[in-house]
């Protein structure tokens, strides 16, 4: 049975989001017809956030909630899945200049997996770093579809994936309730725990999925101040 998970989201635990987890889950329930999401991963910025017990909410809304992190490295931002005490002892997630290759190899050795996110984004994406630095080794996958991408960024990510033969995931990178699940990853296997997710990311069968609405012409013109 396939599982569709939004692998990249930020709740109010991140400095730049005010989205409560329950509101995310309620929104998914409300919009399931257009965004058929089975689960989300909270990837808070520069931290691994253990607070909150979401088991009741998972049952209430029928949505899986997993936890991971988004860290900042010398090759851009990366998602870390399977974070554990050993990883947190080894690496300071608040450091915005973490050494990417050491983190990728270290996390893998300690049971997790690192996935570079929004690789097509300027400065914080892998694509630009590869223009003047050697490619990283042991990359399992990259986030090819990101719900916060600007024009051209997903295209650069796609090009990177094609050039290096990486596997690809998708995530909304949502910082607002109504944007959850815009991009996600479809796994051919069932996923119920973070261990399942790490295993599948390493060796499973998955692909990014895009639930962003096609651009529509705005419906109503609003008189704007100063435009009589």
């Amino acid at each position: 049975m396939a599982t569709i998970i939004d692998l990249h989201s930020h709740s109010e635990a991140s400095d730049d989001s005010r989205a409560p987890v329950e509101a995310y889950l309620n929104w998914i329930k409300l919009r399931r017809a257009e965004r058929p999401i089975d689960g989300i991963v909270l990837t808070e910025h520069r931290q691994f956030n253990r607070s909150g017990d979401y088991r009741e909410l998972e049952d209430k809304y029928g949505v899986l909630v997993l936890r991971a992190s988004e860290i900042e490295t010398d090759y851009g931002h990366m998602l870390v899945f399977g974070v554990n005490d050993e990883i947190l002892r080894r690496f300071d997630f608040t450091d915005v200049r973490l050494p990417a290759q050491i983190v990728i190899d270290g996390v893998a050795a300690m049971g997790g997996v690192v996935v570079p996110c929004h690789p097509g984004r300027p400065t914080v994406g892998l694509h630009e770093h590869y223009e003047h630095k050697p490619p990283l080794h042991n990359i399992v996958a990259v986030e090819m579809l990101n719900g916060g991408s600007r024009k051209g960024e997903d295209e650069r990510s796609r090009e990177l994936v094609a050039r290096h033969g990486y596997r690809a995931i998708g995530g909304s990178d949502s910082h607002m309730v109504s944007l959850i699940g815009l991009c996600a990853t479809s796994f051919s296997s069932q996923i119920g725990t973070i261990e399942d997710l790490v295993r599948e990311l390493r060796s499973g069968d998955y692909q990014p999925v895009d639930f962003r609405p096609r651009r529509a012409v705005p419906r109503r013109a609003e008189p704007v101040p100063g435009q009589e």
């Binding site: 309620n26 929104w27 409300l30 705005p218 109503r220 013109a221 609003e222 704007v224 435009q227």
Partner: peptide
């Protein structure tokens, strides 16, 4: 109701404004 939309409203902010 949850899900209710505000807008969308199209605007252009002029330099005079």
């Amino acid at each position: 109701t949850i899900g209710e939309a505000l807008g969308p409203f199209e605007i252009t902010i002029g330099k005079p404004l």
